[in-house]
Design a binder for these strands. Structure first.
Length: 468
RNA sequence: GGCCCGUUCGUCUAUCGGUUAGGACACCAGGUUUUCAACCUGGUAAGAGGGGUUCGACUCCCCUACGGGCUGCCA
C-alpha cells in the first residue's frame, strides 16, 4: 500500500440503540486519524438487520457524534440502501468460484450443531453443497456462502495487534448473502469499505477475528486490503465489560450530566492511546499527535474522577462565549429550564470567576447561582448561621459607603478591610455574612467577584435585605 | 470445547534489553486561604506466577493463572 494514498477512515455503527461511549471513542480515533492527516472521515450506518435497526437509533447516534464534535465528510451512508450492490458482489463471487449456493436449512444446521455439542465436540458447520454439482440443485431457497480456503492460514497485519495468524481450517464458510437476498455484515462491510475507498479500518478488537474472514473476501475479489487497527474495548471501573449497571454508557448521558465535549474528547482519546506523558491537550494537538503506533493493546477502564479532572481543566481554559453556548446545550439535554435573557447576560459576566472552579456544567451553574438568582435571597441553613445580630449591624454600616465608591475590586477591597479592622474581626468574619447576603450559600466566588458581577444596586439591595 | 487478544502503582499510562521503573488522576500529610474550590510542598503505591534466551530482562520466547473476544441467514 502506498503511503501517499490519502487517508480515508470511517465509523460504522449499527443503529440498534444509543451511541455507546465505546463507539464514541472508536469514532474519535477514526476522526483524529483522518483529520490529523488531511484525510476523510466517513460515516456509515450498518442497518442491514432490519428487525433491530431503527431511525430513532440512527438519529441518536448522529446526535451523539455531533455533540462530541466529530464531523464526518459527506452524507451518512445507509448500508441497507446498498443491498443491490452487495448482492451483485455475492454473485460475482459465485461466478469467480469463490462462493457457492447452499441449500441447507436452518433446521439442518441447528441439528448438526446440537449433535456436535451432544458429542461434546464443537465442530464448524461444513456445508454439503460446497462442491455439489449445480445439476443437483433443488428448487428451494438458498444462501450464498463464501468458499473459504481449507488449508493454510490467513494472516492479519494489524497496526495495533501486530501480526495475527488464523488457521484456515478454523474458519467456516460464512454466509455472505441470506436466503432473502440481503447481505450479511461480513460481506457488506467489505464491499462498502472497498467502494467508499476506506484505507484504514480502526474498530473495536471484537472484530479482530472477523478481519480474517473479511480478508478472504478482499482476496477473492482481488481488492486492496485496508490497514487494520483493532483497538481494545473500554471496560467499566470494575474491569468488566461496560454495561448499564456501570451508569453512564451512552454518549448522550455525558452531555446530560454536563461534561464539556472538549474534555470528553481529551479523556476518551487518552483511554488506550498515549503520546508520551501528555495528559491535557486540545483536539488540534491530538490530531497532530495521534498515531496508530500510540494505541495500547489492553482494555482501559473508565475513571470518572480523571474524566472530571480533565473536564475541569477544559472548562477553565474554555472561551467564555463558547462555554455559554455549550452550557445552554447542556440545559436542554438535561431537561433543565433555559436561561432567560438577563440570566444569560449575568452568567456571561460571571463566567470568568466561576469557570475555573467547576468540573462540570452543573457545578459551574451552582457556583454561578448568586448571579442567576434574584431577590429575595433565601440563605440555606449553613450560610444562615453567618448572619447574626452583630453582623447585621456591620452590614448596615457598610451599605452607605458602597453608594459612592468606585465599583472596582481595587476600590472595594480597602473599604471592606477597613470595616473588618474597625470591628476587630478578621476579613473572613466579614466575608461570611456578606456571602450569605449576596448568595445565601457558602460555595461561591469571592465576595468581590460577586459584587462586581451583580453590580452596585443589586449588591446594596441584597445587603439591605439581609441587614433587615 | 476450539481459535484469537490481553496482563506495569487503586485507575490512565511512559519505558520500545542496561532507569533509584517516570508522569497524571485518586488517596494521605503539611502549607496557603474570605467560603467551595483552586493552588504549592511532600508521601504511600506497580512490572500476575513459573521457566527459559542474554553479560543484563517490565521489555524477547515458552508454560500456567486470570480477564476479554469470536465461534449466527447479529453487527
Amino acid at each position: 500500500m502506498s503511503a501517499q494514498k490519502p487517508v480515508v477512515t470511517r465509523f460504522a455503527p449499527s443503529p440498534t440503540g444509543y451511541l455507546h461511549i465505546g463507539g464514541g471513542r472508536t469514532a474519535l480515533f477514526n476522526w483524529l486519524y483522518a483529520r490529523g492527516r488531511g484525510g476523510k472521515f466517513l460515516l456509515r450506518i450498518e442497518d442491514t438487520d432490519r428487525d433491530r435497526s431503527t431511525p430513532e437509533a440512527t438519529a441518536a447516534i448522529l446526535q451523539g457524534l455531533r455533540w462530541l464534535g466529530l464531523d464526518w465528510d459527506g452524507e451518512a451512508v445507509s448500508q441497507f440502501a446498498r443491498k443491490d450492490r452487495h448482492a451483485q458482489v455475492a454473485h460475482e463471487m459465485l461466478d469467480l468460484g469463490a462462493a457457492y449456493k447452499c441449500f441447507s436449512t436452518n433446521e439442518e444446521i441447528a441439528a448438526f450443531r446440537a449433535e456436535a455439542e451432544a458429542r461434546g465436540s464443537y465442530a464448524l458447520f461444513l456445508s454439503p453443497w460446497r462442491d455439489a454439482d449445480p445439476a443437483t440443485y433443488p428448487e428451494a431457497p438458498y444462501v450464498i456462502r463464501m468458499k473459504a480456503p481449507r488449508d493454510g492460514e490467513t494472516v492479519i497485519e494489524d497496526a495495533v495487534q501486530g501480526m495475527v495468524r488464523f488457521r484456515n481450517d478454523q474458519l467456516d464458510d460464512m454466509v455472505v448473502l441470506r436466503s432473502d437476498g440481503t447481505p450479511t455484515y461480513m460481506l457488506a462491510v467489505v464491499v462498502d469499505d472497498h467502494d467508499m475507498g476506506v484505507t484504514h479500518v480502526i474498530r473495536g478488537d471484537d472484530h479482530l477475528n472477523n478481519a480474517a474472514r473479511q480478508t478472504m473476501v478482499y482476496q477473492a475479489m482481488g481488492w486492496d486490503i485496508p490497514v487494520w487497527a483493532h483497538i481494545p474495548l473500554i471496560h467499566g471501573p470494575d474491569g468488566k465489560k461496560l454495561s448499564k449497571r456501570h451508569g453512564a454508557t451512552a454518549v448522550g448521558d455525558y452531555q446530560a450530566q454536563g461534561y464539556p465535549a472538549a474534555g470528553m474528547r481529551n479523556y476518551l482519546s487518552r483511554l488506550g492511546w498515549s503520546h508520551g506523558d501528555d495528559e491535557f491537550f486540545t483536539s488540534e494537538q491530538a490530531m497532530e499527535w495521534f498515531d496508530l503506533s500510540g494505541i495500547g493493546r489492553s482494555p482501559a477502564r473508565l475513571d470518572f474522577k480523571k474524566l472530571e479532572n480533565i473536564c475541569g481543566l477544559h472548562i477553565a481554559a474554555g472561551d467564555d462565549a463558547a462555554l455559554l453556548h455549550e452550557i445552554e446545550g447542556y440545559l436542554v439535554a438535561a431537561g433543565r429550564p433555559a436561561l432567560t435573557e438577563p440570566q444569560r447576560d449575568l452568567l456571561s459576566r460571571a463566567m470568568y470567576c466561576v469557570k475555573d472552579r467547576a468540573k462540570t456544567f452543573p457545578e459551574l451553574l451552582e457556583k454561578a447561582q448568586f448571579a442567576l438568582t434574584s431577590r429575595p435571597i433565601v440563605p440555606d441553613e449553613a450560610s444562615a448561621k453567618a448572619l447574626d445580630t452583630v453582623s447585621r449591624g456591620i452590614l448596615k454600616t457598610l451599605t452607605p459607603q458602597l453608594q459612592t465608591v468606585s465599583w472596582t475590586k481595587a476600590a472595594l477591597e480597602p473599604i471592606l478591610t477597613e470595616i473588618a479592622t474597625a470591628h476587630g474581626i478578621g476579613f473572613g468574619k466579614l466575608a461570611a455574612p456578606i456571602r450569605t447576603a449576596l448568595a445565601g450559600r457558602s460555595a461561591t466566588p469571592s465576595v468581590f467577584d460577586m459584587m462586581l458581577v451583580i453590580g452596585r444596586d443589586e449588591t446594596i439591595a441584597r445587603l439591605e435585605d439581609a441587614a433587615g
